[in-house]
Design a protein around this nucleic acid. Sequence first.
DNA 1: GTGGTCTAGACCACC
DNA 2: GTGGTCTAGACCACG
Lengths: 130, 130, 130, 130
Amino acid sequence: MFIVNPASSKPIYQQIIEDIKEKILKGIITPGEKLPSVRELAKMITINPNTIQRAYQELEREKVIVTIRGKGTFISTEYQPKRNQEEINELKDRIKKELVEARYMGLQREDILELVAGLLDQLEGGIEID
Amino acid sequence: MFIVNPASSKPIYQQIIEDIKEKILKGIITPGEKLPSVRELAKMITINPNTIQRAYQELEREKVIVTIRGKGTFISTEYQPKRNQEEINELKDRIKKELVEARYMGLQREDILELVAGLLDQLEGGIEID
Amino acid sequence: MFIVNPASSKPIYQQIIEDIKEKILKGIITPGEKLPSVRELAKMITINPNTIQRAYQELEREKVIVTIRGKGTFISTEYQPKRNQEEINELKDRIKKELVEARYMGLQREDILELVAGLLDQLEGGIEID
Amino acid sequence: MFIVNPASSKPIYQQIIEDIKEKILKGIITPGEKLPSVRELAKMITINPNTIQRAYQELEREKVIVTIRGKGTFISTEYQPKRNQEEINELKDRIKKELVEARYMGLQREDILELVAGLLDQLEGGIEID
DNA sequence: GTGGTCTAGACCACC
DNA sequence: GTGGTCTAGACCACG
């Protein structure tokens, strides 16, 4: 099931991207599996098809999914991580921001490490990247 | 020193907010200390004063800083963490998204934990929250 | 209808905030209902859109309204009161100040209680909070 | 004792005005009594003398206090309430605003009436106005 | 000097 | 179409 929060400040198309990636990591959907068509998914979550389209395009650009003309779109069977140093730096920056927030909410160093470890555990079971 | 990247997709006023919070955690600026005035800082980083204003207002709303009429704005001396469960959940969600990204960039569980621990180390030395 | 007095010493954006909150309590506008868009309302009351924007942002921060990307802003359907003790104390303080003023204008204890009761009656009919 | 919060959004001179009025109503200071001189009070609460000056001026304009040249300033012995209808309307408006806030904090009609009655009780014991 | 508010006008991302 | 951000420049209240 896909759920999306249109009231969130995060763009809907990004929510979808993240949702699909997370489901893959967890093994809820697996490489080779077919995704709902743009129109299907749009109806399922009552979202403008253009928005779904954009999410799929982005995922395809990242080679997380592939579209086969006339067949549909599928989870890529041979995903290769990027390891682009610049992007990793940006990621670090975004994570740092969240850690600052966490500290400001009163979470201690150990609380945070535990929380992160727990979240990582949740992401096991699906595909192994790298 | 304050640096800001106007080309970033991240709003300038948020960059300022994050920068100040981070500096406080690191102890680079300390409770009670005076921040540059809106106009001063605006000149320093050649940003419109309104943008600085907005950053300061947000920080005041979060009780990270206080402004004293006619005197200027100061780092709050008695910050209290919120510990709002709902906000912690939102934070967890945001962190989870970043962890998914990290895994997709090919970082392994251990890489990530190390990275997070490293970032937390950088945030030591300043005020103790909670 | 929205009316605003630009000559008042009270900031326009706050007048708008108060007006909307009051209308919700009275049931003039109801949860789920769409508010005029920033530009629309700006034209309606011939106020700069930025000022409307600021009012809406503040209301969103208080979770009185929600904005949905590309759709507009709506009265929140699930408002939860804060019940923050500190804020209640601040409120008490502000009310006390007004009561002092009321007494100085020659209003007697009973006059004031009656006045308050009357005002509370006007705020009936809309949503029930808590 | 006078206490004043320079970090409040309310102007300091107004805080002083309200404080003095409240003390008179409660009977903490009584008609005919001498107030501290501008300079004295300024030193007592470490505030700019100009600010005290402005508070005293305003109180004098409202005939709450009187200044006698060379003697000092005293609580007026013959205060007469204004009963200016326009000002009463403004007061009602300010009170209505606070009642809206109270409702939004989850206080019920009865809670509020009780709170107001309690605050009014605190203002007994001093001078009788009207 | 300080911050607070407002206007006019612009550009952008999202749906 | 929607809201979100930013700039430039102005005026005001406060201390």
